[in-house]
Amino acid sequence: MIEISGLTKRFGERAAVSGLDLTVASGEIFGFLGPNGAGKTTTVRMLTGLIRPTSGRARVAGFDVAENPIAAKRAMGLVPDEPFVYPKLTGLEYLRFIGELYGVRLDEIRRRAPELLEMFELAPWGGELLESYSHGMRQKLVLAGVLLHEPKVLMLDEPMVGLDPKSGRLVKDIFRELAKRGTAIFMCTHVLEIAEKLCDRVGIMIDGRMIACGTLAQLREQGRGGGQDLESIFLSLTGGAEYASLLRYL
């Protein structure tokens, strides 16, 4: 469902993403990990057509993102790392707007928008302007907007940030259910526990390059004896040993 080959993005001299090759199948949840500035968000922004790659190709749901961006965008839904939404629209109006933008039939919007608000416990706020929503509420609304148009591919950049534990659990269950129905999910996260429990495969990126990719078992083998859980593997691959000297300094 997602096919990436040689994807590169340079900002001047610096390569934010360098020669990324990756495939995410239908119904798969792929976790994208890496330290700050590794190039995860840049990758998501290239895949969703927000920025153009310097070189390489990305296909989403069979459509080349650079050559056929509209068709590719129609097939995917994005939850960005910062859920900025129009402050002067209400929650319900936002969903209507998103529904219309993605070509959802009006009767479908009428039926599903209130259901989604109910599901994310936003129904009492549906008629309120978004400027009065908290960060977590906006995050949930953006998720509701993505679910409204039932995309084949979900691009999630830190989707759990700002969510309360109950909503976090709900969102994880939703992702599992969507994957069962065949949706491909590409998720950037810093929360290793979520990646460990939710993702079928995990990729680890450092300095724009993917240094490891596979299932948890495969990563354990690559982890050079770092440990059994994803945190240990991640730290061993990304150079976690430096933390020991830092802790001594503190």
């Binding site: 919007i109 608000l117 008629g127 009065s132």
Partner: peptide, 24 residues
């Protein structure tokens, strides 16, 4: 934070007409 400002209830969604992408 901005005051809660209720603009309308959920009812009007039943009354709106389809806008299309550009109309939206």
């Amino acid at each position: 934070g901005a005051l809660r400002r209720r603009v309308h209830s959920l009812a009007p969604l039943r009354e709106v007409r389809a806008l299309g992408r550009e109309g939206a």
